[in-house]
């Protein structure tokens, strides 16, 4: 019987060495170790052995079984690994082929810039205030220290609905509404759509967008205005941006300033964007005129404030290098896909 066991073991090991398929392996396992397998068959003959031989042969049979089981398990692992490697080889794809893009859309470049501005000022503690586009002449002009027939009305070509109703020429009336309904401290930005009667061309549109800001509190200084504008300019145009204030006149602020930022195209040395000046004008600002505060029931001897305003189209065009304002309102998908 010992020889028989040895023979079975050798035979099984030989077959095992040649096996290349996991199903063959299963068959082999059944053939040798199964209930009707070779080993079982031999062990059935144990009864014919002597009492001395029995444990020895029994031990031997168990050894053979253990050896075969171990080798079969190893072979299985080997086969699985081989099979997997085979599959991986057959699954090679060309990773240099273009990717498939999930069809999501894009926000309009004006929205992108507006969102950025909102984020900057929300972070500086400003709220976002809104108001109507069809506005009372009072809110758009008179409360802002621009009475009827004031020469400053010349510079704002206004669309009129009636004598007392206009399409707002700036978002400043939102500031008026806010001041009339809220007590200082006030810290708001007013984004929105505004109107001036300019014909459509590469740099003008009768409809455009602004963001204005207003801060009113005790002891607000012109230095605070400078600092705020500086922080804002660095946030949106980069940390090396410098600003320059030029005295100007707006009826609703005193002192007033036009504000330039160092050119984002050349950093100040002069280029096409800044027309060689090194500076690009982007906003108007100033200390809120005492008459405006009075008109809103705020005592200018106690409170002071600053205000600023900027055109979003101009900033958007500068930021993205867009050379024709009309592109912003045509909605050609080839344009919109670029943002």
């Amino acid at each position: 019987m010992k020889q028989q066991l040895e023979a079975i073991k050798k035979q099984a090991m030989d077959k095992l060495a040649q096996i290349s398929d996991i199903r063959e392996l299963e068959d082999l396992k059944v053939a040798y170790l199964g209930k009707k397998g070779e080993l079982t068959r031999i062990l059935k003959g144990m009864g014919a052995l002597s009492a001395e031989e029995r444990p020895i042969v029994g031990q031997m049979a168990n050894d053979v079984r253990a050896t075969l089981e171990e080798n079969i398990a190893n072979a299985k692992l080997r086969l699985i690994r081989e099979e997997r490697n085979q599959r991986l080889k057959s699954e090679v794809i060309d990773v240099t082929m273009p990717g498939k893009i999930r069809a999501i859309g894009r926000k309009h470049p004006l929205t992108l810039v507006l969102d950025e501005l909102k984020d900057i000022f929300l972070g500086m503690g400003y709220e976002i205030a809104e108001g109507p586009e069809i506005e009372l002449d009072y809110n758009n002009f008179e409360a802002l220290n621009i009475p009827k027939n004031h020469p400053a009305r010349d510079t704002q070509d206004t669309f009129y609905i009636s004598e007392n109703v206009v399409l707002r020429t700036h978002t400043s009336p939102v500031q008026i509404r806010h001041m009339q309904n809220n007590k200082p401290p006030i810290r708001i930005i007013c984004p929105g759509r505004v109107y001036r009667s300019d014909a459509v061309d590469a740099t003008h549109s009768p409809v455009f967008h602004q963001v204005e800001g207003l801060v009113v509190d005790k002891g607000v200084t012109m230095g605070d205005l400078n600092g705020t504008l500086q922080a804002f300019a660095k946030s949106i145009f980069g940390k090396d941006t410098r600003i320059r204030l030029r005295p100007h006149h707006f009826p609703f602020t005193e002192p007033s300033a036009e504000v330039d930022v160092s050119c984002w195209g050349c950093g100040g040395s002069g280029c096409r964007i800044c027309k060689g000046e090194g500076w690009v004008e982007i906003l108007g600002a100033g200390m809120v005129h005492p008459n405006v505060l009075r008109e809103c029931g705020i005592d200018p001897d106690i409170y002071s404030g600053f205000a600023f305003g900027m055109g979003i189209e101009r900033i958007t065009m500068g930021k993205f290098g867009i050379d024709d304002m009309r592109l912003l309102f045509e909605n050609d998908i080839r344009f919109l896909k670029q943002f």
């Binding site: 000022f121 929300l122 972070g123 500086m124 503690g125 400003y126 709220e127 976002i128 401290p185 810290r187 801060v215 509190d217 005790k218 002891g219 607000v220 200084t221 012109m222 230095g223 605070d224 400078n226 600092g227 705020t228 500086q230 922080a231």
Partner: peptide, 14 residues
């Protein structure tokens, strides 16, 4: 005019 940033003013949440 030296820049300041509303220092000393009540801070607000936007």
């Amino acid at each position: 005019i030296k820049s300041s940033l509303l220092s000393g003013k009540e801070s607000m949440q936007g």
